[in-house]
Design a protein around this nucleic acid. Structure first.
Lengths: 229, 229
DNA sequence: TGCAGATCTCAACACTGTTCAGATTGGAGC
DNA sequence: GCTCCAATCTGAACAGTGTTGAGATCTGCA
């Protein structure tokens, strides 16, 4: 911290911390760059040496949180019951963790999940989408999902879990008690996994979805610079 | 319209129209109350005789659009193939319609789906949630879903479809072409319906979800007034 | 020690949502 | 037809916002 100093030390992450706290206190949108700067004890314009705009700050916070979430989901996997033998249990644990996070920290979750496509220079690791995809590969290997159903299956699962998460975070749906939330997440996850397992659609009729994350990896060569100064 | 007049005629819905157009032109958040007022040819403060705040305007637009959506989904049902005999096709049509709407009109869809719980005095009809619930009742009647799986099944389906919708609207996932989007919506819908149909969970372990809409109906007696003037 | 270059401050810009006293109007009752 | 009231809209103002640019201050390297 070192108060009173002209140079702050690590203003960038201090601003991210302040913004994160403000989001929790005042709500997803009800805070200002100026407030965050003031809280850190710095002038508003100082922030612009670390972020090109308020929106850039939000995206940076979003990416930081997304990496944290990826890590958390991976841990949830490893703590799942029967995690060695039953890859379905691991996926259900991911679904439960994803949804639980949004009800534990709804304001931040809204911020993150609304931020849209992740920036081209973002190196989120581990990215939640990658964690999910890896678990689906594992599921196919273990025979829990027919190989023809594998392509794009992650997006079906993700849709279902993400949907419940944002319905709860946005207050469109309400469920009392964190245990009940977990049970609903499990119900959703199980329904989708069972439904995918008995899929009959010929894979030619199947559209290809791309997450903004994998898309970024695919065209890493294109340098979209938006550096500061 | 009647330009030049001091009294506008129907300023309220004119403001809603202007706001809706601005959302589409400039994006979900990138417009101001003042712009909408100016576009209608009225002073900024005039809007405050019809809406308590900018947020109230947004919610009103959201509710208007939600009612429109409910109507559209109902129509999608009636146009579904085999709509008389196969209630599953009707539900798939709802899912397709819901998702298609968000990719056709993403900025407005974001506004609506983020607006959160609908206000206490809102009379959205037909409400999308009611349309969905009715179709699930029909599905049980026709034997497409075991009765024990019925309670809360709508929320599982809604989660899945809503999830795909917002992933696309927020740009977290990308699918090329409207036909491919429809196919993905169908895949999600089918997976959930099939998964629900073979559910084995004892219904005692099932949490009860409540939409903000049904919740409002339940406690209609409590008058939360936020009138103007 | 001196001196870039990164880092931060200060003052200002245009714009925002919101309020409130007062001008303007349409319509109900005489 | 007229009067008068309530609904409607204007104009000016307030505090607060994101953002910019010129200049002060500090750090680390020569």
């Amino acid at each position: 911290m070192s108060k009173g100093r002209y140079h702050h030390g690590d203003l960038r992450s201090a601003l991210l911390d302040a913004a994160e706290a403000l989001v929790r206190e005042r709500g997803t949108d009800n805070w200002s760059l100026r407030e965050a700067s003031a809280r850190v004890g710095v002038s508003p314009s100082a922030a612009y040496h670390h972020f090109a705009s308020r929106d850039t700050l939000v995206r940076a916070l979003s990416e930081r949180t997304l990496a944290w979430l990826g890590d958390r989901l991976r841990q949830d996997c490893e703590r799942a019951p029967g995690r060695r033998t039953d890859p379905q249990q691991r996926l259900i644990a991911i679904g439960r963790g994803y949804v639980s996070w949004t009800v534990e920290d709804p304001a931040v979750a809204r911020l993150v999940l609304r931020a849209g496509a992740t920036g081209p220079d973002s190196s989120i690791a581990p990215h939640p989408h990658d964690v999910l995809a890896a678990e689906f590969d594992r599921l196919v290997e273990a025979g829990g999902l027919p190989a023809p159903a594998r392509p794009g299956a992650e997006f079906v699962f993700w849709s279902a879990v993400h949907g419940l998460a944002v319905l709860l975070a946005d207050g469109l749906v309400h469920i009392d008690g964190s245990r009940a939330v977990e049970l609903q997440a499990e119900r959703v996850a199980r329904a989708v996994l069972n439904g995918l397992a008995q899929e009959k659609t010929p894979s030619t009729d199947r559209p290809t979805a791309r997450s903004s994350h994998t898309e970024r990896l695919a065209r890493r060569s294109i340098p979209e610079i938006d550096e500061i100064h």
